[in-house]
């Protein structure tokens, strides 16, 4: 057991956990931030995607002791009022079916758009291929991403 200090969604948090605990389980079990989802535990499905210093990362593959000073953002902290442009696009396109993977999809998409405001289909595929949607909402996800910075 170790005491670990983290910055999550702009707040300093201190947790007593095994140092090798994946960030995913610290978020879910210790911090009650359950919007970040467990899907596979091996970095293959993207359900656990969060931002670490602004970059989309699989939180099941990050040991909490590795985080250090880096700033962690989860779906709960993506926007104050749930109105991040990607969240709004998701609602406008009525993307979710079951909704379980969508937090991870949104975190991957918002990271992509931060660095590539007008992504091509190939760039969207590359950025989003790590996020599985079992309900098959891919065409809506792509349309939502494209609409975020669309002109006109």
């Amino acid at each position: 057991m170790a005491t670990i200090n983290l910055t999550v969604n702009g707040k300093s948090r201190s947790v007593d956990v095994d140092a090798d605990t994946p960030l995913l389980w610290v978020l879910r079990d210790q911090l009650q931030l359950v919007g970040t989802k467990y899907g596979c535990g091996i970095g293959s499905c993207g359900a656990c995607t969060v931002h670490v210093d602004g970059l989309a990362m699989r939180s099941c593959q990050l040991r909490v002791e590795q985080i250090g000073e880096q700033k962690v953002t989860t779906i709960e902290g993506l926007s104050e009022h749930g109105d991040h442009p990607v969240q709004r696009a998701w609602l406008a396109h009525d993307v979710p079916q079951c909704g379980y993977c969508q937090a991870g999809q949104i975190m991957s998409a918002s990271s992509l758009l931060e660095n590539t405001p007008h992504p091509s289909d190939v760039e969207i595929d590359a950025a989003m291929n790590g996020n599985i949607c079992r309900c098959g909402t891919y065409t809506r996800i792509k349309a939502a991403i494209k609409s975020v910075n669309a002109v006109g």
Binding site: E76, G82, P96, A103
Partner: peptide
């Protein structure tokens, strides 16, 4: 057409699922 009534809770990561139960 009406939007998913839980859409907002889904895109903001609210606890909705069994695995989120606490």
């Amino acid at each position: 057409s009406k939007k998913n009534v839980q859409g907002r809770e889904i895109v903001t990561g609210k606890p909705l699922f069994g695995i989120d139960y606490h």
